[in-house]
Design a protein around this nucleic acid. Structure first.
Lengths: 191, 191, 191, 191
DNA sequence: AAGTAAGCGAGACGGTACGTCCAGTCTTGGT
DNA sequence: ACCAAGACTGGACGTACCGTCTCGCTTACTT
């Protein structure tokens, strides 16, 4: 029989208030102007309650912002038409990443990941890896590609969309993602 | 006739010491553990001398680390063989970005760019834009591509190489860049 | 008939453990480094159990340390020889107050009394007043002094012994108390 | 030639503001409710400026409050009449110690001295020792007493006045000091 | 003997203050 | 005139305890 981790009586109300305060402050002020004191004050919570459950600001912010990415549907839809599915999906990805809080969250998480290996790993596990896998497996299944080629194609699509968005922000247009996806699909399907 | 910016009476010795100290500290401790006081102490310089010439830590670090990227040769070589040139170039890029200080510098600058628009613009102007243009113009010139397609292809190559390196660090292998480049060239050249 | 305070259902084991822990910590670390959390931990008791029965740290410490003074015999012995009795008694007082825990306790209680009127009153009632009365009544009874003179003489003996001990600590020698007592007795008995 | 301690450029304005704030807060709230943060805020000073020059709250408070005692005239006047001089002096001492800020300061310093050896030594050097010496030397010079007897008599007068004041506060009346002084002088002068 | 409520240990909670680090500004003295 | 040195105000850090507040568990007193 398995013993569950001690749940250690923890106030759900405080946890939720800390999450909400952190999300708000991170999105409106950015990561490096986010202070634990401000979060505590906004959440109506003692600082120690934050330090009791999170080891560092980086982990707190990652916990909060990754929640959104975790609940995002990153899988390529399957209507039977590989090209249409991938194009639609890449446009949707571009639209998500240039819209509202996802945009800001992604930049904050990327910044944090550059300096903290643990955040890097979590961001990858929650965002980079799922989208990569999603394309890769679809390309293998329906495009008849071998694993290595599918991997490289996925690199190109993911990086080709995400990297310009990180660099140029919300000016990125979905049409740019569509064109890129077409080129890669053309390159990958020997006619 | 253009008058060069008045250099005022500025101590070149101090400037160089500050650059050296900043580079060393940034590379060994990371951006957010880099303090102006530590730089001043290591450079044997008063804090005011730093504040006199740089408005913020972000700008100082960008000045210092971008120097390296500025002196990097990012242009695609031209041997006449487009495919060979691009493949060689993408491998070289991958190799540079996973080696030594470039790797660390790129991560620091990217992190800084995520939070600071000015750094973002400078990084783009010094790194992202030149490599993108370099590929794009070559594809237009020798591949016979139209501007829009060449732009999308450049997105795919640059993002496809740089984004995984940012995420997975120095495990990235040049062969991965080569395969990706081949796919895109295949997709872009109507056979 | 007086009804004693309901003792409620109070754990004698906990009370004793708290007393012991408080005494040990007070004597070894001093009053202002004594924390309720440390007492609770050392006594193996919840903090609430302390707060349930004592309103403040000052009261707890006073309760604990005054116990010792309460059990001290502070009355002047009566062998019929007033001079010998008072001298012996003042030497004994000096010896007690410079020995072992009494010394430390007296300093802690005095410090606490300086800042807290309630402790001041209790220390006075348990220590200052009894020794003062003890001398005063003896001087009135056997020395034939009027109340006012006896009071002043008691001031001189008590203050003359206790004050230097508080100030100079355990270097005080009983001979000093003896000489002082002799002088006062001389001054008080018009021959 | 002696080199004076480096005076280390220090802001006199800040020093004075810290002194004033500390004195006010100590006298109105007592030692243990005095916080460094409150002093800094009231003085309009960064906390670091306090920590830069004083190692602890106890030392700061001692510095500030002892200033008053240092400027107090504690010497026994000399009109030629030993009895009148000592009586007047003891009444004046009682009056000072039961009046205004001296009363509060003495209690705070005494409390602090009980827990901190360094403060104890300074309080003794600034207050206890000078008054003791003042009486003692006068008794030796004009009363014809030997050193040991004069020492004991000084113990009696100082302790006999100060100790009740510490214990019973401002209810102490100068007449009580006068009577006590008379008794001791009587005891000390062989008629 | 069972039921119940007070006392208990544990420790999370909102807070206050600690003593430290650094930011960015200001001042002094030396070269 | 510029610079190194470093003191200044101020904000945030992460820690220690405060006194209050549940939470289940144990225990002694009903009835």
């Amino acid at each position: 029989m398995v013993t569950v981790d001690k749940p250690r009586r923890r106030s759900e109300k405080s946890r939720a208030a800390i999450f909400a305060a952190t999300r708000e402050l991170a999105l409106e002020r950015g990561f490096d102007k986010l202070t634990i004191e401000a979060v505590a004050a906004k959440a109506g919570v003692g600082k120690q309650t934050i330090y009791r459950w999170w080891p560092s600001r980086a982990v707190l912010v990652a916990d909060v912002l990754l929640e959104d990415f975790g609940s995002m549907d990153l899988t390529v839809p399957d209507t039977g038409d590989l090209t249409a599915d991938l194009i639609g999906w890449s446009r949707a990805l571009a639209r998500s990443l240039t819209t509202g809080d996802f945009s800001t969250s992604l930049r904050i998480l990327t910044a944090s990941a550059m300096e903290d290996a643990h955040t890097a790993q979590r961001l990858h596990a929650t965002f980079g890896e799922p989208i990569h896998t999603s394309i890769r497996t679809r390309l293998e299944a329906d495009g008849g590609l071998d694993a290595i080629t599918a991997h490289a194609a996925a690199d190109a699509i993911v990086g080709g969309v995400v990297y310009p968005i990180l660099n140029q922000g919300n000016d990125y247009r979905p049409a740019r993602a569509e064109l890129l996806t077409r080129i890669i699909l053309d390159g990958v399907r020997k006619p």
